[in-house]
Design a binder for these strands. Sequence first.
DNA 1: TAAGTTATTCAACACGATGTTTATTAATAG
DNA 2: CTATTAATAAACATCGTGTTGAATAACTTA
Lengths: 188, 188
Amino acid sequence: MARDRRVKYTKMILRESLIKLLLEKPIARVTVKELCEKADINRATFYTHYTDQFDLFKQIEAEFIADVNSYLDNFTLEQGETGLFQLIVKIFEYVEKNSELCRVLLGRNGDMDFQTHIMQIVGKRVFFEWGKRKKVDEIIAEYIYTYVATGSIGIIRKWLFEENQESPEKMAALVARLANKGIEAFIS
Amino acid sequence: MARDRRVKYTKMILRESLIKLLLEKPIARVTVKELCEKADINRATFYTHYTDQFDLFKQIEAEFIADVNSYLDNFTLEQGETGLFQLIVKIFEYVEKNSELCRVLLGRNGDMDFQTHIMQIVGKRVFFEWGKRKKVDEIIAEYIYTYVATGSIGIIRKWLFEENQESPEKMAALVARLANKGIEAFIS
DNA sequence: TAAGTTATTCAACACGATGTTTATTAATAG
DNA sequence: CTATTAATAAACATCGTGTTGAATAACTTA
């Protein structure tokens, strides 16, 4: 009942080949033909698993989000500001470990939809930690949430392409401080 | 020496037609054929002006950035916090006036490259206003700059797709406050 | 290990979009 | 008005697409 090893290999090599291609050019410039040539997989085989290159791309994104979630689930956090800080450290560590994929998904060849999606996923966790302790107006809160989440991803993206990367701890301290200050500005 | 009216029309109608198409689907799903049919322009004519649909798209983005810049150049700002606030109000007013195009360029069908680009352009202005008054560490400053700029664009994007939009003044007040607080957190 | 299942490959196909070229027509600038 | 030049229409080779049927190879399970 376990999944066929051939299928595993096919999906794996196609996945890796697409990521390699996306390091060079946007998904819109990638053809199914060249992807299959790079992966050394028959085109007909590709079509038994995916409808087109975008389909595969979406699945890579979905797997990434699932992986991030399960990764973050494995940590029990302390209460208060320390817990929030720890969470952000973990996020930076994860990005560091998966830098190639992150560069593809968050870089210039990534798509906006995913950006928004990952922002909501990660942002909710951070915001949840913070929300345990503070209260703000509803509409304002959503905007602050958006601001903090997109701003943080912006920092991650910059950090991701930096020559001499600062440590995850330093970055987390920076982000946590920015988030807290921005949020505190609106406590009634 | 003035540009031929036929050329003006061709470029204009192609531009408008592409924007209409981009309200429905991403640029990768748009074909030159359908674009030309929508614009009622011969395909051969399209190829005398652009290499492909991406080329036209890039030009639309470039024109947008040029337009934003010249728009913002037309305002002389007061000194200090009032000046920064005024600038942000102007940005929100601009977005409101050009909401259709902004929805295309900043929405889910926009591309990340443009997002980064516009972030730098607008962010530099805001940061310049702020930089007149404060001093911070170099590397930290760049991260804060990135954070504030991407966060602000995140807010603009959310606002752009809202049912009952808050006024530009209210939004500007929110953004200015968030920017100032985040920045002040790092003054030595 | 053997048997039956199933994924992959290969070749071929019709189809549509691409990018280019030619001659022709129509609009424009001066 | 005239010379210029842009847009059109039709045709073309080329390429990627998505699907098919038969042959082959690898896998799972008993």
